[in-house]
């Protein structure tokens, strides 16, 4: 692909000041995290952490001098990391990602987005590509920000279906249960044998799945554990795999939207859940792309009187629109909260 040219990590120290000086969307960012400044101290009390070269973390609190620093609120966050899918993906592993495995992410975003909106009634959810191989979800409703740790862990566990460690091959069991590694998911020796006979005849994954479905269907009446077997296999293979410890706490650091991934140089851009399938992580601009684009733009438009904001000259523009749309939804909630704080009632 055209923009898959290797990002040169050693350029970062030169590029970052330019990016944060000219391109980072401070205005929108402040608008987001101040949440209408209800209460007034909301933004000033926000914790930010900065990571220096060589992964040195700066957190503004020093436990040796301050003891009463306690996190009170935070967005409810979700972290989906491609490495948790290693046992079900065959294209890449570890930190690598390709368009094939992005589908897992798209499925995860779709499912979580619906669950959070329909079941839990949250409205302000920002999905952000983490810059390399994962996705972060920020649930920003006032109701979500003030959830207790107990409630966060209940939400996370409600949404987490795939569990079980290295020594449990079947990780999804519905109430009433590893092969091609597929076949190992099938607990019944008879069915397993049947399948290993017919499977090699299939030539694509669609056919294989149809074969499995038919075989299970044929044996459904024989055993109780077969009732949900197809669904269980589907869940184990594609259901979102959450790092739920991230969601449970309120002191966990999560990479900020619009920051730059230090290894890939890509911007952590927000995207719409509805566009998740079309999103291409390999096309997300890197910091050097952006700076080049600004240069290109300025070259062609010298001498114009109207000043254009720098980010609008780049391919990051569309991501900022996504962010702004999210913010306009949020601002309605902020306005209602401000009225309420002042003793007004929204009708």
């Amino acid at each position: 692909m055209a923009n898959e040219k290797k990002f040169e990590v050693h350029l970062l120290p030169d590029l970052l000041p330019v990016y944060y000086g000219r391109l980072f969307p401070y205005e929108q960012y402040y608008k987001w995290l101040s949440y209408g400044n209800v209460p007034k101290t909301y933004f000033p009390h926000r914790e930010f952490s900065f990571t220096l070269a060589d992964d040195i973390y700066l957190r503004p609190k020093d436990h040796r001098t301050v003891t009463a620093f306690v996190p009170l609120e935070k967005e409810l966050v979700f972290d989906i990391d491609m490495t948790d899918y290693d046992e079900v993906r065959y294209c890449c592993s570890g930190a690598d990602i390709c368009l094939l495995c992005w589908k897992y992410m798209a499925v995860a975003v779709e499912i979580l987005d619906i669950g959070l909106r329909e079941d839990f009634g949250f409205n302000h959810i920002l999905w952000v590509f983490s810059g390399r191989r994962g996705v972060h979800g920020w649930v920003c409703d006032a109701r979500a920000r003030s959830l207790s740790q107990l409630a966060r862990s209940a939400v996370a566990e409600y949404l987490q279906v795939v569990r079980g460690g290295e020594n449990q091959t079947k990780k999804v069991i519905f109430n009433s249960s590893d092969l091609h590694p597929f076949i190992n998911l099938i607990p019944d020796p008879e069915l397993r044998e049947n399948l290993s006979k017919v499977m090699p005849k299939c030539c694509n994954s669609l056919q294989r799945w149809e074969t499995i479905k038919n075989e299970i269907e044929g044996m459904k009446n024989k055993k109780k554990s077969f009732t949900h077997l197809t669904t269980e296999i589907m869940f184990q293979l594609i259901y979102p795999r959450l790092d739920i410890n991230v969601s449970k706490g309120i002191n966990h650091l999560l990479k900020s939207p619009f920051s730059i991934h230090p290894k890939t140089g890509r911007v952590c851009v927000p995207f719409n859940a509805s566009d998740a399938y079309a999103f291409n992580p390999l096309r997300v601009p890197t910091i050097s792309d952006l700076i080049e684009e600004v240069g290109e733009f300025d070259k062609t438009r010298t001498g114009e009187a109207v000043k254009i904001t720098d980010y609008k000259k780049t391919s990051m523009k569309s991501s900022i629109f996504v962010f702004e749309k999210f913010l306009s939804g949020l601002s309605k909630e902020n306005a209602a909260r401000r009225l309420e704080e002042n003793g007004w009632c929204m009708i």
């Binding site: 948790d84 046992e87 795939v162 079980g164 460690g165 290295e166 020594n167 449990q168 990780k171």
Partner: peptide, 14 residues
């Protein structure tokens, strides 16, 4: 809670 890729927990249970 034992998740994907974890090998802690109680072997007799997990």
């Amino acid at each position: 809670n034992v998740g994907a890729g974890d090998c802690h927990g109680c072997p007799f249970k997990h």
